[in-house]
Design a binder for these strands. Sequence first.
DNA 1: TACCTATTATTAGCAACTATTAATTGTAAG
DNA 2: CTTACAATTAATAGTTGCTAATAATAGGTA
Lengths: 195, 195
Amino acid sequence: MIRNLSKLERQKRIKEYISKDPFLSDKKLAELFNFSVQTIRLDRLEMGIPEMRKRIVQVAKNTPSTDKVKSLKKEEIIGELIDIELGKNGIAILKTTKDMAFGRTGIIRSHYIFSLADSLAISIIDTEVALTGIARLSYKKPVYAGETLVAKARVARNRGNKYLVSVHVKSDQKEVFTGKLVIFSVNDKVKKEKA
Amino acid sequence: MIRNLSKLERQKRIKEYISKDPFLSDKKLAELFNFSVQTIRLDRLEMGIPEMRKRIVQVAKNTPSTDKVKSLKKEEIIGELIDIELGKNGIAILKTTKDMAFGRTGIIRSHYIFSLADSLAISIIDTEVALTGIARLSYKKPVYAGETLVAKARVARNRGNKYLVSVHVKSDQKEVFTGKLVIFSVNDKVKKEKA
DNA sequence: TACCTATTATTAGCAACTATTAATTGTAAG
DNA sequence: CTTACAATTAATAGTTGCTAATAATAGGTA
């Protein structure tokens, strides 16, 4: 039984180590944990963790290529962009923490949710610069620190440089927020055409 | 079998291909250019281009870790509370900085302005816990990094635990944002319901 | 003809694996 | 105590995508 526990603990730690540093090879992990390379491999297989090279490829591919997201740099996005189809729709995830909440209740401050929705909405607009014009927000349910928010945005209408984007944010399948944002693309081409 | 590519041209193209897609192996490049793998390798060596694996690692390493959500600090958001009359009105000031702006244009991201308005609106409600329910936002003019925003909020209506707060944000006397927020004052009941 | 360049081939070796089989070790249960 | 079993380690063969070194080949030039 003692072995069972140590095995589980080791696997748990290996998982943590790898998630922190995907560049760790089995050899290095074996040295770190003072187990044989074979044991480490076995652990990885049991946990379904791919080999180092594939992990590195995953990390590299996860990099949003600059021409895929035009409006925002990676650093400017609140939350994590999961999927995006420029001009159509997109999904982003935000793991809420205590820092984002009211200390007394643990309820997430509304502007964090808006920030997630707003930056996602801007991300999906296929243009150089996008600005929010008008927004209607509706907070359905309080969100507590620790909950993971999934935001889905969709371009509902598009006339010229004016986009109507609807955003739905869910936590654990339940809708906690919806918003309709009117976003304007500010593109040099549009400006010239209009002028 | 006649290749219309000179050595220099081929190398130039290989460089382009790799810069576009760092995941190309020598084998794939050889197939693409209809040259032998050895020739491709020779070309890479001459141009000092590292092997595919090292290129992937490079891409992966300058990828900012995805779980590092850029969190907004409270101080940044709320601004400075200048004056407040609980249940009636309040004024807050926010000095905008480059961190709050789109790198390309220097325009302040909309959620910073909303955060100022939202937190001010919540502050003036005379209750333990206040939550935003519905909001209508209107961004009138872009705000540039460095400008100082003055937000004025006023309780327009109050029925029971429901408050309608209107917020006007000005930069240099000019209105840049207005918003109408419906805010609910709540007790610890909400927390208990959830738990 | 001898020389030169570009290209291609060949061979050995490496890192970091997968996949499989087998041996060893500890330990709990019959 | 012995057996059964899980965990661990070892050993072996094969893969990918390379490096490094050497050699062979084709084509053109002086």
